[in-house]
């Protein structure tokens, strides 16, 4: 399992950026949480999401897919802190609502090829030509991790039969936004973080 963090535009961590739903079975049952939403997904699977209640796009609902193709290897117990960020910008959502298909490949930068700039993950988004192979570009610059596709497709009556909501791949949604260390609980569908004093592991993050 690999943690991902889905972040919608204008998400301040207070739940004002919108809602993110992870579908847990082919019938369309989902687990919903506020943006930024952190969930543990299985590598190699394709997940269907629903993003809604976005302040900048009132009434809009989109159903992007997330294809997790690789994982990280953070220190033990720090998996939640290093969730793969999936940032959807306002421009991308607007294009999707216009009927365009937005394809995004998120990759892990190769350190020696990283741009020597100080910025955030959201700013490190390059718009490529539609004729370019995104996976090839990402593979050249680092290690592709996630493929995100956002379009205007909506579920129809036969969605459960066609696998629109996926095929029941395992997903565990974190109850609260990341930022504190946590661990995976045994309860399916939901994750429970331990108390803050139990989260830190001595000797792993010595600061001055």
């Amino acid at each position: 399992m690999q943690f991902v963090k889905v972040e919608l535009p204008n998400s301040t961590g207070e739940g004002d950026g919108g809602q993110v739903s992870f579908y847990t079975n082919p019938q369309g049952e989902s687990t919903t949480t506020a943006s930024p939403a952190v969930a543990a997904l299985r590598v190699g699977s394709v997940y269907r999401l629903k993003i809604s209640d976005m302040p900048d796009f009132p009434g809009a609902e989109l159903f992007p897919t997330i294809e997790l193709i690789d994982r990280l290897h953070p220190p033990r117990g720090r998996e939640v802190e290093f969730a793969i960020p999936i940032v959807l910008t306002a421009e991308e959502i607007a294009k999707a609502l216009e009927g365009r298909l937005v394809t995004k490949v998120i990759y892990l930068e190769q350190p020696d090829r990283a741009a020597p700039v100080r910025n955030t993950t959201a700013a490190r988004n390059r718009l490529a030509d539609p004729r370019e192979n995104l996976l090839a570009i990402a593979d050249e610059a680092g290690r592709p991790m996630v493929i995100v596709r956002v379009g205007g497709r909506l579920p129809d009556a036969a969605a459960s039969e066609t696998g629109f909501f996926g095929f029941g791949e395992p997903v565990q949604v974190l109850d609260r936004p990341a930022g504190n260390a946590g661990s995976i609980s045994a309860q399916p569908g939901r994750l429970t973080l331990p108390a803050p004093e139990q989260q830190s592991r001595p000797g792993e993050a010595e600061t001055e």
Partner: peptide, 15 residues
């Protein structure tokens, strides 16, 4: 130091 950094490449196509 464990410090992964991510980036993204995006394309927008017309159906």
């Amino acid at each position: 130091v464990y410090s992964p950094r991510f980036a993204a490449v995006t394309s927008i196509t017309q159906s």
